[in-house]
Amino acid sequence: MSQVLQLEGVGRTFGEGATSVAALRNVSLTINAGEFVAVMGPSGSGKSSLLALAGGLDRPTSGEIFVESTPLSRLTLNELARLRRRAVGYVFQDFNLVPTLTAAENVSLPRELDGVPVRKARRQAKDALRIVGIEALADRFMDEMSGGQQQRVAIARAIVGDRHLILADEPTGALDSATGDEIMGVLRHRADEGSAVMLVTHEARHAAWSDRVVFIRDGRIVDQSEAANDPASLLAQSGL
């Protein structure tokens, strides 16, 4: 199974000297293609810092990060931006969509910024919207869509152009429980189709859609839990 994201001994410290704060300490983590990993931990534990580093939005103060085998520390800022647009998709709690653009335009925007001809970018956007189940809403503006539909647009934007690393930061935070489950279903499906998904959440019921839960506290990974390969095994253990 190919490694899509790899963190090796990653640390991130803000400030210097006596007032410095270590957000992450010696974190090592690998996410393979087709794997869905959830990161859980209390507020201030370093979850969001981890996500920002994994997607090249921030640089570590120690260690190395590889995205599709490329070491991010060796890239210039321009090369890093290009790699992000080509390989990494982000999904945020508040969607971060442009309200004056349609769903299709929002999704095609990163491709167009990357120099892909508009017609091809729009075709790729339609493909991505179809994958997340809202192709029929391609021409709608954001104020004409529900929160769940907007988050699907954001996921389509994250996967457009064959990107295989999806980083999601509390993507269900603004949604009701049932819609949150739907969004987890979409992310789960993307992983089943071969994407690597990293989800930051404090909701146990959403983290439970993952293959692996990574627990982080005070900037360190303190534990991990993996789902059983055979769900039938739960029958044996649930003798309540």
Partner: peptide, 21 residues
């Protein structure tokens, strides 16, 4: 607490997977 949380989370993952399937 953490040992229990990991074990409970693993059960929750299994139940969720079984429900999905």
């Amino acid at each position: 607490i953490q040992a229990q949380r990991s074990a409970s989370m693993r059960s929750l993952q299994d139940y969720t997977k079984a429900r999905r399937t």
